[in-house]
Amino acid sequence: MELFFGLITGVLFGFLLQRGQVLRYDKQLGALRLKDMTIVKFMLSHIMVAMVGIYLLNDLGLVKLSLKATILGANILGGLIFGLGWGLVGYCPGTSVGAVGEGRLDALWAIAGMLAGAAIFARCYDALLGTVYTWGVYGKLTLPGVLGVSHWLVIMVLLAVFAAVLRFIERKGL
């Protein structure tokens, strides 16, 4: 049943990616150049829905959160590599697969890069455990936990901030 829900969720997300036009290379490039905020609006909207949905399902006991430890070294290095890859090929993992589904074969370079990166990561993992994975280890952190407040308070504040950002982007015509 989990696989079925995963399939349905993936198809729905792919449909939304396609309808939001975020699979297009020009939208990706526009986001990287801060000239087209379509992808930013898409991501913020989905983050807003997801954070409410996940915490609601968690509070109802239908899902269990599985937090990963905050490790600054790994997060920073991973973010730099991800950003470099996105900047070089103009696709992130989800949009590259969706773009291939739409017939954009240039996105195969992004998929090839991800596979090569995964292979390199697997090969280097043991060495990373003794270095990068030891830099800035803070354990399993959440913003509500750090602040000592209800997760719903943090969610409401973030919803207000994200809504204000979306409104600002819309007013600027981006």
Rank of each mutant, 00 (worst) to 15 (best):
2 E>K: 13
3 L>Q: 13
4 F>K: 07
5 F>Q: 15
5 F>W: 15
6 G>E: 06
10 G>T: 02
20 G>I: 04
20 G>A: 15
20 G>C: 06
23 L>E: 04
25 Y>G: 00
25 Y>F: 15
29 L>E: 12
33 R>M: 11
36 D>N: 14
39 I>A: 11
39 I>M: 11
41 K>H: 07
43 M>P: 02
50 A>K: 09
54 I>C: 06
55 Y>R: 13
57 L>S: 10
58 N>R: 11
60 L>R: 09
63 V>N: 07
68 K>T: 03
69 A>N: 13
70 T>V: 13
70 T>F: 09
72 L>A: 14
74 A>W: 03
74 A>G: 00
74 A>I: 02
78 G>T: 05
81 I>S: 06
84 L>W: 15
85 G>I: 02
88 L>H: 04
90 G>I: 00
92 C>I: 04
93 P>G: 01
94 G>N: 07
97 V>L: 14
106 D>Q: 10
107 A>L: 02
108 L>Q: 04
111 I>P: 05
112 A>L: 13
112 A>S: 09
115 L>D: 01
116 A>P: 12
117 G>S: 03
118 A>C: 11
119 A>S: 13
120 I>M: 14
122 A>P: 08
123 R>H: 11
124 C>N: 13
125 Y>R: 10
126 D>N: 12
128 L>E: 00
129 L>M: 10
130 G>W: 02
133 Y>D: 04
133 Y>Q: 11
135 W>C: 06
135 W>L: 13
135 W>Y: 13
138 Y>V: 01
139 G>C: 05
144 P>C: 00
151 H>P: 07
155 I>N: 08
157 V>A: 14
159 L>H: 07
159 L>S: 04
162 F>H: 08
162 F>A: 10
163 A>I: 07
164 A>Q: 10
164 A>P: 03
165 V>N: 02
166 L>S: 02
166 L>R: 05
167 R>D: 09
167 R>H: 11
171 R>A: 07
174 L>P: 01
